[in-house]
C-alpha cells in the first residue's frame, strides 16, 4: 500500500500514526510533510528507523518550493509528479492520511 502524508511532522501526529499503524509499503511525503525528510529535522531519525519496513519517497517540487531542495536526508528517493503517479499506479491501493 502507498501511504500519502501531507502534514509537517512537528505540527501533527499524522506521520507518527502512519509509521506506528501501517504494516509497511511505500510512504510518499507531499506538501508540508516534506519537512520530515530534511537533514536535522526531528523526524529524520524516525524515518531512518522505519527504513526497511517502508520505502520513503519525497515529492521534490514541494521540497524545492520550501527552500530545502538541497537538504534531503539520505536513504530516501525523490520523485516528481510523474513519479507520484507511478507510485500510485504500482501500488495495489493507496491511502491519504488526512
Amino acid at each position: 500500500m502507498l501511504h500519502i502524508i501531507n502534514q509537517s511532522p512537528l505540527n501533527s501526529s499524522t506521520l507518527d500514526t502512519c509509521l506506528n499503524t501501517a504494516s509497511g509499503g511505500d510512504i510518499l511525503l507531499i506538501e508540508d510533510a516534506v519537512y520530515a525528510a530534511t537533514k536535522g529535522n526531528a523526524a529524520e531519525a524516525k524515518l531512518r528507523a522505519a527504513n526497511g519496513k517502508f520505502k520513503v519517497h519525497v515529492l521534490m517540487p514541494d521540497l524545492e518550493a520550501r527552500g530545502l531542495g538541497d537538504r534531503m536526508m539520505d536513504g530516501i528517493s525523490a520523485v516528481d509528479y510523474g513519479g507520484f503517479v507511478e507510485l500510485v499506479a504500482n501500488s495495489k491501493n493507496c491511502q491519504s492520511w488526512l
Binding site: I4, N6, V88, A89, S91, N93, C94, S96, L98
Partner: peptide, 9 residues
Amino acid sequence: CDRLVTFGD
C-alpha cells in the same frame, strides 16, 4: 476507477 487518490488537509 483502478485507483482513487484523495487530496485534503
